[in-house]
C-alpha cells in the first residue's frame, strides 16, 4: 500500500517537476553555460573560458553588485523596523480592521510598479508637487528630491513593503499571548519581552519576510532607474545593459550567475535555519 502511495505521489508530482525543469532549471543552466563562453558570442558552441568573470572583477562590475546588496540590506532593515509595529497591530490589535488593511495593501500591487514610481517622480521632482508648492508659498526654489541613493532606498521600501509586512504578521501571530504575558508577569519590560520572547518565537516569519525582501530588492531595477536616475548603477541594470546595449551575453550571464549565487546561498542558508513547517501551521 505504501509503495503504491509513493508511486502515486511521484506521479502526481511529475507535471510540476517537468514544468519547473523546463521553465526554471533549463534557462538557469543555459545562463550558467553562457557565462563561461568567450566574449560577445551568441552560441554555446565555443570553448569555455572564464573571461567574463575576469572582466567582471577587472572592470569594476562587482561595485554594482555591492551597491545592490548594500541597498537591499538597508531597505530590508528599514522595512523590518517599519513593518514590525504595523504587523504586530495587524496580528494582535486591529482585529477586523486587519482585513481592511490587508486589502488596502494588496490593492497597491494591482497597479504596476512603474506607474506607482512615476507617481513619486511627479511628487518629488523639481517643479513637482513638493518643490512646486514650496516655491509658491515661500518663493524659494530647490533642486527636487530625486536622483540620489536615499530616494532609491525609499522607493525600494515603498514598493516591497507588502512582502515584509505579511510574513512578519504571520510570524507575530505565532507568538502565543500567554508567553508574552508570562514574561511580563515575570518582570520583563517591553524591550525584554521583544528580545527574549517575540523575536525568537516570530523568527520564522521574520526570516521569510527578510529573505523575500532582500532577494527582491537585490534584483530590483525600476527604483534606481526612475527615482535614482542612475545616481548609482545597480547590478540588474548592468545585466540588462550587457544583454541589450552591450550585446555581450556571456558577460551578462556571468553577472547574473554571480547575483544568483550570492542571493541563492543566502536564501538557502536562511531557509535552513527556520522551521517552515511551523509557519505552514503543521505540527512539529
Amino acid at each position: 500500500m505504501e509503495r503504491i502511495n509513493q508511486r502515486l505521489g511521484a506521479l502526481s508530482a511529475l507535471p510540476v517537476v517537468l514544468f519547473l525543469a523546463a521553465g526554471f532549471l533549463a534557462p538557469l543552466i543555459v545562463v550558467a553555460a553562457f557565462s563561461m563562453m568567450p566574449q560577445k558570442v551568441f552560441s554555446l558552441a565555443n570553448l569555455p573560458d572564464f573571461s567574463s568573470y575576469a572582466i567582471m572583477v577587472k572592470e569594476g562590475y562587482w561595485e554594482s553588485l555591492l551597491v545592490s546588496l548594500a541597498m537591499a540590506l538597508a531597505a530590508t532593515l528599514i522595512l523590518f523596523v517599519i513593518c514590525w509595529p504595523l504587523a504586530f497591530a495587524m496580528a494582535k490589535v486591529f482585529g477586523r480592521f486587519t482585513l481592511v488593511l490587508t486589502i488596502g495593501v494588496v490593492m497597491t500591487l494591482f497597479v504596476s510598479e512603474n506607474i506607482r514610481l512615476f507617481g513619486w517622480v511627479l511628487t518629488l521632482m523639481k517643479g513637482g508637487l513638493i518643490e512646486g508648492y514650496w516655491r509658491t508659498w515661500t518663493g524659494q526654489s530647490f533642486d527636487g528630491l530625486l536622483y540620489n541613493v536615499p530616494v532609491i532606498i525609499f522607493g525600494l521600501v515603498y514598493v516591497y513593503l507588502p512582502f515584509m509586512l505579511f510574513p512578519l504578521a504571520q510570524g507575530i501571530s505565532m507568538v502565543p499571548d500567554d508567553a508574552r504575558q508570562a514574561a511580563f508577569d515575570l518582570g520583563a519590560n517591553r524591550w525584554q519581552i521583544f528580545r527574549e520572547v517575540e523575536l525568537p518565537l516570530a523568527a520564522p516569519g521574520i526570516m521569510v519576510g527578510c529573505l523575500i525582501t532582500f532577494v527582491l530588492t537585490a534584483g530590483a531595477i525600476a527604483e534606481s532607474k526612475l527615482l535614482g536616475g542612475r545616481a548609482v548603477i545597480v547590478i540588474s541594470d548592468e545585466i540588462e545593459r550587457a544583454f541589450t546595449y552591450g550585446q555581450n551575453w556571456p558577460l551578462g550571464s556571468a553577472l547574473a550567475v554571480t547575483l544568483i549565487g550570492v542571493v541563492g546561498t543566502l536564501a538557502i542558508f536562511g531557509v535552513s535555519r527556520i522551521d517552515l513547517d511551523a509557519i505552514m501551521g503543521r505540527r512539529r
Binding site: P176, D178, A179, Q181, A182, E196, V197
Partner: peptide, 8 residues
C-alpha cells in the same frame, strides 16, 4: 498560568 505559558 493555566496553559503554563512556558517558552517553547
Amino acid at each position: 498560568f493555566q496553559s503554563l505559558a512556558l517558552f517553547p
